[in-house]
């Protein structure tokens, strides 16, 4: 079970994300879908800021991108894989190996230590239990500037800002090609927010990771080169 589901080695300019005619609904009976995306694309290494009102389907879109949600209509290609052609188990493994996810809160198991949280993420991606504390983990925690007195503390004794930084470390430990961030700064104050965004940008640049960052807070747009309106992506919102 050591085989990672690697993205198909595609031509140089293959997009990291390509959506085509995607429609999604939580319940099958509902008359109007929550998402209806004719076409949306993100290139490799791009940092995209998706902005939209609360309830406009941002989290749902991210759920589709990381394979937690599934739809039968259209194409949802992520890193060269058409996700909805994969079995549930394969999608889970794909997500573990290739996608780093940072949510608004509860990014870490509160009663595990910082290091154990990272080991846990490793364990789902590799399926081998060589979960020893190693240089990789150490380097990661140094990169997110977590003092090493905190490394073996339960996560719930860290400040929110520290927790979100550990979440960044956790999200990139498996060397993903794509980071998905769902309003990761909404629970942070101004100074923590800026530090967090900078750190996220730096890390994803450094490892050439594609970043999809979702928020309703337009003030964050300054950090991004590409800004997409949710209303423009999702036709349901535009109606």
């Amino acid at each position: 079970m050591n085989t990672r589901i690697l993205p198909v080695t595609a031509p140089a300019h293959s997009p990291a994300i390509r959506l085509k005619d995607v429609a999604f609904n939580y319940t099958e009976q509902a008359s109007t879908p929550i998402l209806n995306i004719p076409s949306w694309q993100v290139d490799e290494g791009e940092h995209v800021f998706v902005v939209g009102k609360s309830g406009s389907g941002k989290s749902t879109l991210l759920g589709l991108l990381c394979g937690l949600l599934k739809t039968d209509s259209g194409i949802t290609e992520v890193l060269g894989q058409n996700l909805h052609k994969l079995s549930g188990r394969k999608r889970d493994q794909f997500r573990a190996c290739n996608i780093g996810y940072v949510a608004q809160s509860f990014n870490l198991i509160p009663y595990l230590s910082v290091v154990d949280n990272i080991k846990l993420a490793i364990s789902f991606a590799t399926k081998t239990s060589s979960s020893t504390f190693n240089n990789d983990i150490e380097a990661l925690l140094r990169a997110v500037k977590l003092p090493n007195s905190h490394w073996f503390k339960p996560v719930n004794r860290l400040s929110i800002g520290q927790q979100q930084r550990v979440a960044i470390a956790r999200s990139i430990v498996n060397k993903p090609k794509l980071i998905i961030a769902d309003e990761p700064t909404s629970s942070l104050d101004q100074s923590n927010r800026d530090a967090f965004i900078e750190m996220l940008m730096e890390t994803s640049d450094q490892h050439k990771i594609t970043l999809v960052f979702v928020s309703h807070d337009l003030s964050l747009r300054q950090h991004f080169t590409r800004i997409d309106e949710m209303a423009a992506i999702n036709l349901v919102g535009g109606l």
Binding site: Q93, A103, N107, L108, A121, R170
Partner: peptide
Amino acid sequence: QLLRIIGATA
């Protein structure tokens, strides 16, 4: 939910 996000299967 978190476990699922980091790749735990059902």
